[in-house]
Design a binder for these strands. Structure first.
Lengths: 220, 220
DNA sequence: TTAAATTTTTAGGTAAATCTAAAAATTTTT
DNA sequence: AAAAATTTTTAGATTTACCTAAAAATTTAA
């Protein structure tokens, strides 16, 4: 059984490991809003418990056990987000902090029943996949909107940026999950993208387009 | 903002204060499964924060602020219990420990929306009243089953014992909240009580009868 | 391939919440 | 109203998760 803090470290390491193999001390410290010295302390503790592999100065990787623990926390976080949005009518930009607390509630029974109550959702309100109780993720096939060519179309199925500002912006533009879109133009000048929705056209910056994930429905 | 531990102390003191005015160090220690010395330390801290009034060797009482904080935790605990039973199909004897964790989640928005989602319940699955968001309790008029005379009838509206063993026992006998009952006999020998339900008769010990709360529907 | 910059670790400390053992105050009993 | 029993507090440690400052290792640049 881990403390909340240990769980948060494991989760952070898990997410950082999606980009790099060996996760660096400084990266963890920045993510967790703490100091590198504190991270070193905790890493040693997690290594003693067999949750991470650690070689001095070489960063950490999660062990099988550590990874399973992290995935379980991710599962809980995402299920609670679905609960907050689907049942309590929170907006997708309001759920992160509360889920950050709820994810640490320890009861296997609770999460299984919650999962069932929610209808075994496969993705959270931002389109991130929810692992099943065995830690397995459904395969997802995303492509970044920025990579689409003029004329390509697809469905918005996720975002790779969870900041409230970004999510509110998308909401305002009508770019929410499930929306059908087609790229109608890409501006030479700044790379901004013009998008056709069922009922309107909107223009988004390159930066925004980078963080919208599309599941293409056939095409090119 | 209090730590989980501080919240638990406040809640414990609140419940103990329902029976005695000045709450004793030892009583808190026993309830919280800790040592009196630890309680003294924490009491000092709570006193410094203005959450309890404390005179050495004289026990503690909650201040207005302390009491409000405690009531807020009680509110959260009971709302989560309703959620667990009504929405996730937990039994009334299974919810306590999980609610004990959930009660510490800090989000006013969450609790208000949960309250609404649950239909603003007035009582938890054990019949305990749920304070509203201003900390006010609906007036309740309970009488212990043991105090009823032969012939008296009423509705089971609460229990004053939350142990799993007790609750499972009641469940098995069919003595659940909302059931109409009438006292058909009281045994001289051991004070056990015979109860008529709509479809059957059951016999319960004095000890059990002490912990069943009845709202009388007119009578005697 | 040294020097400089960066990253990481070590050493030594702090605050929160706990503990044990012993001292002090209060309450109960005789 | 002493003596005995009980309750409560103090004193001094421990553990967890932090911190700062300085040392050590690694990486990057000159």
């Amino acid at each position: 059984m881990q403390s909340y803090t240990e769980e948060n470290y494991l989760k952070t390491i898990y997410h950082l490991a999606e980009r790099t193999t060996n996760v660096q001390t400084n990266a963890i410290a920045e993510q967790m809003q703490t100091k590198p010295a504190s991270v070193t302390d905790m890493i040693k503790k997690l290594a003693d418990k067999g949750l991470v592999d650690y070689i001095k100065y070489q960063g950490v990787t999660l062990t099988e056990t550590g990874k399973n623990t992290a995935i379980d926390i991710v599962r809980k976080h995402r299920l609670w987000e679905v609960f907050l949005v689907d049942k309590l009518n929170f907006k997708w930009d309001e759920v992160h902090d509360v889920a950050e607390e709820l994810e640490h509630i320890r009861s296997v029974e609770l999460i299984e029943r919650l999962d069932e109550f929610l209808g075994f959702p496969k993705a959270d309100p931002h389109g991130d996949p929810i692992p099943d109780k065995n830690g397995r993720f459904a395969k997802t096939q995303f492509i970044k909107l920025i990579e689409l060519k003029v004329g390509d179309s697809g469905t918005i199925t996720g975002v790779s940026q969870h900041s409230s500002a970004f999510l509110k912006h998308l909401e305002k533009l009508g770019l929410t999950l499930g929306k059908q879109i087609q790229v109608s133009d890409v501006t030479d000048f700044d790379g901004s993208v013009e998008i056709r929705l069922s009922d309107k056209q909107v223009n988004i910056s390159r930066e925004v387009a980078k963080h919208i994930l599309i599941s293409s429905n056939g095409k090119n």
